[in-house]
Nucleic acid binder design. Structure first.
Lengths: 122, 122
DNA sequence: AAAGATTGACTTCTCAATCTTA
DNA sequence: TAAGATTGAGAAGTCAATCTTT
């Protein structure tokens, strides 16, 4: 992860947390999720998420919108610019994964590694 | 690592980077290393190390001393208090490793995991 | 009272610039 | 000029407190 992050940074991209959020939003129905949902799928802590969303919004990658169902919450909606940024990042991210992982493990070894690491998660 | 760090924090211990530095110092001849050496064995970046050492020194866990061989550098020496802190931390750290890793993998699985992860390092 | 989200105050990280000695 | 190490300024992370709605 450290090497991959370094490659992304060297290519001028923001931290992976940005990508994680944009990816989840891009996959979600209507391109939107509530902060509490983002928190669950990305492992970003709640108090980090508020300010991360501020940065994404400042860059025009997402917008915040009121939430009719629950006035305590809000929607975070990915913009076209956000979708473009996610797609652009993936091209570099994928290459970095291939370089730092794909080239070093064949499919069988990768499957074994995934299984073993899976045992460590709660 | 995240789970282990969380356990340590919950038990009131500082971040693992502190432990890494204290461990390396405790193993070094005369309990001392130069910052540039610590940097190499712990993967702590140089610009982080200066301030990390400030904190360790402030807590009385290490002291800085002049270096006769090379006046540009200095020695970082672990104190008795530092050695005690390292030993105390290890007790909690070891338990956390056992809980989050040891209990979830038998020896064979652990060896396989170590081998596969080893292939990923440069 | 609890959940969703933000904020304030403080700490730590990061990058580039700086200082000293080799 | 390069290596060892620190520093300043700004960005990001952390914890607890806060605000609004359920």
């Amino acid at each position: 992860m450290t090497s991959i992050e370094a490659d992304l940074k060297a290519a001028g991209f923001p931290p992976l947390a940005w990508y994680d959020v944009l990816l989840e939003l891009s996959r979600a129905p209507d391109g939107r999720l509530r902060p509490v949902e983002i928190e669950k799928v990305t492992l970003v802590a709640q108090y980090n998420l508020s300010r991360l969303l501020d940065r994404l919004e400042k860059e025009g990658l997402v917008v915040r919108a009121p939430c009719a169902d629950d006035a305590r919450g809000q929607w975070v909606v990915i913009t076209e610019k956000g979708r473009a940024a996610q797609a652009r990042t993936w091209k570099v991210y994928a290459k970095a994964i291939q370089k730092h992982v794909g080239e070093k493990l064949d499919d069988k070894a990768a499957a074994t590694l995934a299984e073993l690491l899976g045992r460590l998660t709660d």
